[in-house]
């Protein structure tokens, strides 16, 4: 009796872990891969994985294909029934072809009329990618840095379409940037010295990226 109950429990658990799909709804992920010189990247692997954020949630490799001669890809697959299932597009992952990989995370709400159009996705050569670290050197007790932002060519390994910008409470201080360029850094400095009036100022800096990793220190 106990064995039968255990078997039934295991079957129910495995069923509940599986992602359910709607065969009458098909969603589309499309785009084009290019290099930094706008040349199409053909025969590069694109995979679509669905996964649940639950502790015992399942995942599926729901679709895959290679880009065509013009670097284009179009993948059509059944939509997950749940609105909370993540749809992850992995580009050129684990390929060892000298080009970077990219991951784009989405939910069904990010699809417009059943389609997620990634448009042109630029892949840089891994040898052209460097790291910029922003080091926050806090010497005062009444000041805070918020909203660090850089303008320039970035590798963009991971893009999360599912979160709103204002939901991101964590400061990003490490950036994967392209070598041999000038980066414009901007950040917000909040001064709480005057208890009555908080002073907020926008700060800027210019950072030269050469061939090595760069550390830029902000002292405040």
């Amino acid at each position: 009796m106990k064995k039968i109950l255990l078997l039934i429990f295991t079957l129910l658990l495995s069923y509940s872990c599986e992602i359910q799909y709607d065969g009458e709804t098909r969603i589309v992920v499309q785009g084009q891969l290019i290099d930094r010189n706008n040349n199409p990247l053909s025969d590069k692997k694109i995979t679509i994985t669905t996964y649940s954020d639950d502790t015992y949630g399942g995942s599926d490799l729901i679709s895959y294909a290679n880009t065509d001669a013009e670097g284009r890809f179009t993948l059509v697959f059944p939509a997950p029934k749940s609105e909370e299932i993540f749809i992850q597009t992995s580009i050129n992952e684990h390929q060892n072809n000298g080009l970077q990989s990219k991951i784009i995370n989405a939910l069904k709400k990010n699809f417009n009329n059943y389609k997620l159009d990634l448009k042109q996705v630029v892949l840089y050569e891994t040898k052209d990618i460097s790291q910029l670290d922003i080091l926050l050197n806090k010497v005062s007790t009444n000041k805070q840095i918020t909203n660090i932002h850089i303008e320039g060519l970035q590798a963009g390994y991971f893009t999360d379409l599912t979160t709103e910008i204002n939901q991101n409470q964590l400061l990003t201080t490490r950036f994967d940037v392209i070598k041999n360029q000038t980066i414009n850094l901007s950040y917000t400095l909040v001064d709480y010295t005057d208890p009555i009036k908080t002073v907020t100022t926008n700060q800027k800096a210019v950072i030269e990226i050469n061939s090595e990793n760069v550390i830029h220190t902000i002292t405040y």
């Binding site: 009458e24 709804t25 098909r26 969603i27 589309v28 059509v76 009329n113 059943y114 389609k115």
Partner: peptide, 14 residues
Amino acid sequence: KLDISTSPEFVSFY
């Protein structure tokens, strides 16, 4: 004829 909801350019296909 099968029921389908998808991007317009694929409706006829499915």
